[in-house]
Amino acid sequence: MIVASNLSKRYPGGYEALGDVSFAIEAGQMVFITGHSGAGKTTLVKLVASIERPTAGSLVVNGQNLSALRRSAIPYVRRHLGLIFQDQKLLFDRSALDNVLLPLQIAGMPRREAVRRAQAALDKVGLLAREKARPIALSGGEQQRLAIARAVVNRPTILIADEPTGNLDAESAGDILELFADFNRVGVTVVVATHDQNWIERYRPNVLRLDHGRLVA
């Protein structure tokens, strides 16, 4: 569950990326955040992931008020989130499997169980056959699916994606959307920032539309 009340983010220098935004995303919902470039989509995603801190208002994720969070508590909040970025932030010096293993290693899971879980996640996104491949050898769509496997391997309650299909052709983008819908069906809250109109039409009315940092719908 994600609840924003009068949420604002002003960057040093006075630029207001988000102003007085309030909304509530219920557990198990699938919600799209849309708007033009610079409307504040990425800022909102960064606030939910505790990469940035709000300058005013409150943001409660899974019952934790992120504006009052200690710095040392941030890692534990992030472990309950699955984060997916437009540039997937994969590690190119290791195999697909090792990329997916990273969150489990961070959580301190024993190796054998971690490998089993990581393989299950790779299987879910259709990349099990390529577990030994380096990310550089994967196509754009495959790389994004690998990033999704890494995001879900920890079984997060919330999946947040920032423009996950920005660099993909329509078919690959469709695959990604189907994956998100699958995770949502098993109860994961899914929040996707995108300007892909097809998705937005399909998932109305679960759409938050931002315009110059203000919520308009």
């Binding site: 472990r79 932030k89 961070i106």
Partner: peptide
């Protein structure tokens, strides 16, 4: 950077 993003402690 990636490790930080996915919940690694300091």
């Amino acid at each position: 950077e990636v490790a930080r993003m996915i919940g690694a402690t300091d």
